[in-house]
C-alpha cells in the first residue's frame, strides 16, 4: 500500500511541475537591462524632425519609454490604454517608433533611398497618431532599429520605466493591459516619484 502513495506522490509532483511550467510565458524573457542605465541615443523627433532627444534630456524625471510602430498589430490593442493613461497621469510618455518602414515587411528596402524612407516613416507615423490619438509627450524615430537593439527590443510593443537617475526600473514586453498598468506600472511610478 505504502508503495502506491509513493507513485501517487510522484505523479502529483509531476502534475504540479507541469502546471507551473505550462503557465509560464516563454515570451517573458527577463531583461538584463533592468537596474542598468538606459542606453544612450540621439534620435530625431516625430513632431519636429530638426530636433533630437537623448535619454539624458529626461534626467531628473521618471518617464515611460514605449516602443511602437504603425505596422504593429498589438500596439493597437495597447494604444487606447496609453491614451487614457496620458490624460490621467502626469508622467512623460516618450514613444520610440521602431522601424516604421523597414519593419512593415511590405517594402523592398534595397530599392528605397534613405530620404524616401524618412519621408514615408514620418508620414506613416503621423498619420497613425492622428488616427488613433497621440498619448506621447513626444516620439523619436528609430528608422533602422539600432536603438531598439540597444534596448533589447524583440517584440513590439515594449515599455520601459526609467527613473530620475536614468536607470531602467522595469521592462514589459507585449501590450500593456489595464491590469499590468494598475498593478505594476502605477505603483512603481508612485514609488519612484516619491
Amino acid at each position: 500500500m505504502n508503495r502506491y502513495y509513493w507513485i501517487l506522490g510522484g505523479f502529483a509532483a509531476l502534475v504540479a511541475l507541469l502546471a507551473v511550467g505550462l503557465n509560464l510565458n516563454p515570451r517573458d524573457v527577463p531583461s538584463p537591462l533592468v537596474g542598468k542605465p538606459a542606453p544612450a541615443f540621439t534620435l530625431s523627433q516625430l513632431a519636429e524632425p530638426e530636433k533630437t532627444l537623448s535619454p539624458k534630456d529626461m534626467q531628473g524625471k521618471v518617464w515611460l519609454f514605449n516602443v511602437w510602430a504603425s505596422w504593429c498589430v498589438s500596439c493597437r490593442v495597447e494604444h487606447p490604454i496609453l491614451v487614457e493613461f496620458s490624460k490621467k497621469v502626469d508622467v512623460p510618455l516618450i514613444g520610440l517608433n521602431y522601424k516604421e518602414v523597414r519593419g512593415d515587411g511590405g517594402f523592398d528596402m534595397s530599392k528605397m533611398p534613405a530620404d524616401e524612407e524618412k519621408k514615408l516613416a514620418w508620414q506613416r507615423a503621423n498619420q497613425w497618431l492622428s488616427q488613433h490619438g497621440n498619448p506621447y509627450t513626444l516620439t523619436v524615430m528609430d528608422l533602422d532599429g539600432r536603438v531598439g537593439i540597444d534596448y533589447g527590443v524583440y517584440g513590439v510593443p515594449e515599455t520601459y520605466v526609467i527613473d530620475k537617475t536614468g536607470l531602467i526600473r522595469m521592462k514589459h514586453t507585449g501590450p500593456i493591459t489595464p491590469e499590468i498598468l494598475a498593478k505594476k506600472i502605477m505603483p512603481l511610478l508612485a514609488e519612484l516619484n516619491k
Binding site: 524573457v29 527577463p30 538584463p32 537591462l33 537593439i149 533589447g152 524583440y154
Partner: peptide, 8 residues
C-alpha cells in the same frame, strides 16, 4: 548580445 537580451 547577452547585455541586451540576457543569458536567454
Amino acid at each position: 548580445m547577452v547585455a541586451r537580451y540576457g543569458d536567454f
